[in-house]
Amino acid sequence: MNTAAAIDPRHAAGQRLRERLFRAATLVAALLVLTLLGGVAVSLAQGAWPAFAHFKLHFLTSEVWNPVTDQYGALAAVYGTVMTSVIALAMAIPVSFGIAIFLTELAPVWMKRPVGIAVELLAAVPSIIYGIWGLFVLAPVLQRHVQPWLIDTLGPLPLVGRLFQGPPFGIGILTAGIVLAIMVVPFISAVTRDVFETVPDVLKESGYGLGATTWEVIWQVVVPYARTGMIGGIMLGLGRALGETMAVTFVIGNAHRIGSSLLAPGTTISAAIANEFTEAVGDLYTSSLVALGALLFLITFTVIAAARFMLLRLERRALSSV
């Protein structure tokens, strides 16, 4: 280190200047992060304004999406987004929970790392791969074997049956939900695993000390403690599923319709934008698509913000109880 600063006032001034510049640079970069979010929000709001001004609340309640008559409504896209995400979570939560339990409690030490890494590799696979795999491998299997079985066994049932009626197309809301579930599992299981590991050993030991089985310790000690974090992880997965584009676009069927059956084709907000944006002619059409984007931003922002908040609380709790 150069101690010339102590001797030469000019050198000290140069150092101070560099310090100010560097500090300013880091501050500017940090503020840029804020500006980015703000910029995205403003840009979306600006682009969406014509559509909202024209259709007002009707935009949110109408299922019609007709470029011929220039009538647009977000309901079908929002329904598809929500429905596919709900299906994805319904499948992913139990599986992720199971994986987290297996990796933290059951797996022998030599198995933990490779299996853990393998599950996280699922997260590294780009979403377009999920899309083409879903279209070329999963959809035919679903069309030929799984969906006919679903229609035959679950279709005739009184209430639930409505969800499983209709022709087996292979693609549709259910298929998209399944692909999303596979995509989301690594995220939820990674967070759940981390969260399980923050549970203080002393709590678990006391459970075992009282004679509880492994499952009872997990269900009655670990889960209540980690509950907030688990919900945070689930909501992160939800946020991911809501915004996913490529995996869904291939298998959703691109139909701006709300079908009563899960086997029907539908659309999601991101799939609609991906498919139609570069071809939307007319300001109202383009603005409606950006409005869909604004809706998606709003929905995912709320979900992700809530999730991060919950995880933050758990982190603070973990740090303070150490």
Binding site: V64, V68, P140, F169, G170, N254, N275
Partner: peptide, 23 residues
């Protein structure tokens, strides 16, 4: 147009692909 039923695909390519893929 707003087709009352069926599946949407992108481009002539997409329709050809989807038709070949779906029984």
């Amino acid at each position: 147009v707003q087709w009352p039923t069926g599946i949407g695909a992108k481009g002539n390519e997409g329709v050809a692909n989807m038709t070949a893929q779906t029984d």
